[in-house]
């Protein structure tokens, strides 16, 4: 039903969104090619996670279009959107595992809901994915008993259980030690290479981004600064990119009156 051989598997055009009076994303346009790892970078509050929510249809933009597999998702009926979502996987920052279920039940849930496979087949499939994430020994534990890195890997196992064509991963490295973070990066590369997934990763970790990305999009204050391969990002002369690469704090010009107003406002 969905053409996964389409060249640009994700197409975003002139996407604008705002919350109350605040503009969150301005005029974002982005193409993600099949089997590509696209990393969306930006500092906290830059709007990168909001962009991700729009890409999976959890938020509706004020204007602009978001196409997955060539289908405009902002205009899809609920049932069609659910049908499309069976072909994507989303791993949330916190894992978002269901706290009332064991790790294994969490991972098996999409299979139980969407397939008519028998129990033992589902068990084997979930163990395959858990083994890939090195979690087989913990399958009977509840999410509250898992560490941060395990929760992320478990969230990833659940996201890929239906072998999606596109995987979205929100902040894989946030809150993890460097070794665990590097392991997750390896896993992401493995998923693309072994399962031919198109992967969109949202992160603020430079090292991780440059390790896994085919192309990188940098977002700052809701605006798209650049989209390009690693070389293009490194060569960019935009001061915001240079600051980001050199891990420098952004020196915004301070407006003295505005600063005073902020301090003294009621």
């Amino acid at each position: 039903m969905y053409d996964s051989n389409i060249k640009n598997i994700i197409e975003i055009e002139a996407l604008n969104t705002r919350y109350k009076d605040k503009q969150i994303l301005s005029d974002i346009s982005l193409l993600v090619e099949r089997k590509e790892i696209m990393v969306i970078m930006g500092h906290s509050g830059s709007g990168k996670s909001t962009l991700l929510r729009h890409m999976i249809g959890l938020d509706t933009p004020v204007s602009g279009s978001v196409k997955l597999f060539g289908k405009e998702i902002t205009k899809l009926k609920k049932s069609n959107l659910y049908e499309l979502r069976k072909h994507i996987g989303v791993a949330f920052q916190s894992g978002a595992l269901f706290s009332s279920m064991t790790l294994q039940e969490n991972v098996e849930l999409p299979l139980h809901q969407h397939t008519k496979l028998d129990h033992s087949t589902i068990r084997i499939m979930s163990r395959l994915k858990l083994e890939l994430m090195k979690l087989t020994d913990y399958e009977d534990l509840m999410p509250a008993e898992l560490s941060g890195g395990m929760l992320k890997r478990a969230g990833l196992a659940r996201a890929v259980i239906m072998d999606p064509k596109i995987l979205f991963f929100d902040e894989p490295s946030a809150g993890l030690d460097p070794v665990t973070s590097a392991e997750l990066d390896e896993l992401i590369l493995q998923l693309r290479n072994a399962l031919n997934m198109t992967i969109v990763v949202v992160t603020h970790e430079l090292e991780s981004a440059f390790k896994i990305a085919d192309r990188i999009t940098v977002i700052d204050n809701g605006s798209q600064i650049i989209t390009g391969d690693k070389e293009a990002i490194r060569k960019s002369t935009d001061p915001r990119i240079v600051n980001m690469l050199q891990r420098k704090a952004v020196n915004k010009n301070i407006d003295a009156d505005g600063y005073l107003n902020k301090l003294t406002r009621n």
Partner: peptide, 25 residues
């Protein structure tokens, strides 16, 4: 409280993303 926590922890978003209708589930 259970459903509120599911909302806060993105579990309801996760259901939506897995194409599981929270109304039905």
């Amino acid at each position: 409280a259970e459903i509120g926590i599911m909302r806060v922890d993105n579990q309801i978003d996760a259901l939506e993303c897995m194409a599981i209708d929270p109304y039905r589930y």
